[in-house]
Design a protein around this nucleic acid. Structure first.
Lengths: 210, 210
DNA sequence: TAGATTGTTAATCGATTAACAATC
DNA sequence: TAGATTGTTAATCGATTAACAATC
């Protein structure tokens, strides 16, 4: 890649992927920047600019083949090179992700979950084994884990993140609602703040009434 | 408000609120655009620009009083004027939100949850009553509901959104993973796509190896 | 070929950063 | 008062949009 691609573009890629997957399922074979833009609420220009960050997916005078474009974007996002994931904390949210979130669909392989509850260790949730938290460090030593999902109580967040980072986990998907600011070296943190999303919705809702 | 405030600014407000709440809890009384910027990874200029969209919170030569600023931003986000919320679909994710997400902390009041499972109707989750889905329409007729949280199967998404919108629900917080594109009139939809977040993390992780 | 649509360069727009007078 | 820091205007930077030659 010649130059750094902006975060704005990267964050649009999943949306493109989603829309193209839908269109493919609906039986469409081709699209164009104009057509796709109309469906997604983007300008044709922007779509062509975005796609051209990664080289020519289209054909002049024709447009884009949906399957090819979908696969191309999927490949940029790495769907074809799975990373391993563990879930730390099997409470409501952890279980919801284990049971309902299709990690494999997005290029991730969920290998285990960890929880300190005595009753949980040794069980499995939707096929994913739940291990006792005490065995986490050992597990990380013996297994390659690329991403740790944090769905544990706030008070344990930092400790878990540091342990994971030290043991070679390179990505943290953090649902605890507190920001992980600490320097974790090479480890990249993606903080998910559901409250940000709801607060934003609330702002616009209240604005409409006034 | 004289002019329209950009979405970028609005989406930073929850972050300011979070950081200021933390600083207040840590016992700090004052801050400045420079100090706050260093903590949050933003420039002092940007913080002053953002805050001045809403009028002068600061005092020249002094900076900002943390509690005042926090309350001011909280008020802009409407924390002091609660909106009512229901959760539609009490599966894993719905239950996780009901039990763990502090709606009241963000200016929302959770009044009920709905689910079609025979065993659930009549029970309650962390104090929130669970009602049968068949009673949803009647409930919406008789009660003011500002926001509906959608945590039900994908196939039911659009129907639920349309019903809610018709019955006067003005905001939809959609966790189903499919986009709600349909025209719902005045109803504002906030689509939460957890996969977007994970895919973005994956992109950056894979990029570091190559 | 003629029409369509891309890839790409140029123009515009908006957001961020810098600068500085006002003032606590 | 002198120092600090805001509020606000100006400059810069980057992202989006428009335009158009290339070409299928």
């Amino acid at each position: 890649m010649k130059y750094r691609i902006s975060a704005n573009v990267i964050r649009r890629l999943p949306r493109y992927l989603r829309r193209l997957t839908l269109m493919e399922r609906q039986g469409f074979e081709k699209t164009s920047s104009g057509d796709l833009g109309a469906r997604m609420g983007l300008t044709a220009s922007q779509i062509r600019q975005d796609l051209n960050c990664f080289g020519g997916f289209g054909q002049q005078g024709y447009g884009y083949n949906i399957t090819d474009l979908k696969d191309g974007i999927g490949s940029i996002l790495g769907l074809d090179k799975p990373l391993t994931v563990i879930v730390i904390g099997a409470g409501n949210l952890g279980r919801a992700l284990i049971a309902n979130f299709h990690f494999e669909k997005y290029g991730f392989q969920l290998t285990a979950a960890f929880d300190p509850a005595p009753g949980l260790a040794g069980t499995s949730i939707s096929g994913t084994p739940v291990l006792h938290s005490d065995t986490l460090e050992e597990y990380l030593t013996e297994n390659r884990v690329d991403v740790a999902v944090l769905t544990l109580p706030r008070s344990h967040t930092l400790r878990a993140a540091e342990l994971a980072s030290q043991k070679g986990v390179r990505g943290i998907w953090n649902f605890t609602g507190i920001d992980i600011d600490a320097d974790l070296g090479d480890t990249i943190v993606e903080n998910v703040h559901l409250s940000d999303s709801l607060l934003t919705l609330g702002y616009y809702l209240r604005g409409k009434t006034e």
